[in-house]
């Protein structure tokens, strides 16, 4: 083996160990619920807990709603900025980065001040209102990822020419976005969607402070009160996130193929 390769593998092994050792330790610990030998009892305990099912379902539903709302907001915004207002792109880049800079706790306190039950728009006055607020908060939280995914997707296709080609054939703007633009950036949109889902499933701060029965606060609650189940939940959360990431990798294979040829 050449020395350069040896050091490359050594660096890789060190990096991998940094991530894998705690994960393996957590996994090993999650199997120790029964004294004396390994079992999946902690996993059985988690899966049979009605609160687990309810909170996971709730977060999944909010995640799907956040994805739909995110796509409806981001895709037309990126499309019009690319097509008609390219000068606004730097501003758009900056605005979509803000959720990474502003801590979630600041965001949620802002929401509570602005939309509390005695305000003009009392979103937090009802469970449904708070759910809507939570969905909007997650759209904001996932904005940096959704925006970049969609923007990358649109960069890969010639948005202007495809729009003009469809336009002169008689298509309206809604038809162009729905039938031409969206299908051609679907893989990019889906990767943004899975990132959004991964964020929503594990999010604690906003859900907890808005007092909603989400999966993040449930994780925290179990972590504070049980011994082995939190480890099992940590592994389950990892698997969900990895599943979402794996789907992104899988979908990348179906990205639209370029058809630029001169022959």
């Amino acid at each position: 083996m050449k020395p350069s390769k040896f050091w490359a593998w050594a660096a890789f092994a060190l990096g991998a160990a940094y991530f894998l050792v705690p994960l393996l330790a957590t996994f090993e610990f999650s199997l120790r619920m029964r004294r004396g030998y390994y079992s999946f009892d902690s996993y059985a305990s988690v899966f049979s807990d009605p609160a687990f099912q309810a909170t996971f379902l709730y977060s999944s539903l909010i995640g799907v709603l956040a994805i739909v709302l995110g796509v409806l907001v981001v895709v037309p915004a990126v499309y019009f900025v690319r097509l008609r207002l390219p000068r606004l792109r730097p501003l758009m880049e900056f605005v979509t980065l803000l959720p990474l800079v502003i801590p979630a706790i600041v965001l949620v306190y802002g929401y509570i001040r602005l939309y509390n039950s005695s305000s003009l728009i009392p979103f937090t006055g009802s469970a449904l209102g708070t759910d809507i607020l939570l969905t909007c908060a997650y759209v904001t939280l996932a904005l940096p990822y959704m925006y970049r995914a969609v923007d990358t997707g649109m960069r890969a296709i010639d948005v202007r020419t495809l729009t003009e080609a469809a336009r002169i054939l008689g298509a309206s703007t809604a038809t162009i976005i729905a039938r031409i633009i969206l299908p051609n950036i679907l893989v990019a949109v889906l990767s943004g969607a899975f990132l959004t889902f991964a964020i929503v499933i594990g999010e604690f701060t906003i859900a907890s402070l808005l007092n909603r029965p989400a999966f993040g606060p449930y994780l925290q609650n179990i972590g504070a009160n049980r011994a082995y189940e939190p480890s099992a939940l940590a592994i389950i959360s990892f698997l969900v996130t990895w599943g979402a990431m794996g789907m992104i990798q899988l979908l990348a294979r179906f990205a639209p193929r370029t058809s630029v040829r001169t022959d």
Partner: peptide, 27 residues
């Protein structure tokens, strides 16, 4: 443009990549 009833062919072909040849022509 969509009200003018004109046809146009572009330098970069501009076929819709997500549609088949038949669906492109029938668009």
């Amino acid at each position: 443009p969509d009200q003018r009833r004109l046809g146009m062919v572009f330098q970069a072909y501009a076929l819709f990549p997500n549609l088949t040849v038949g669906d492109n022509i029938g668009f």
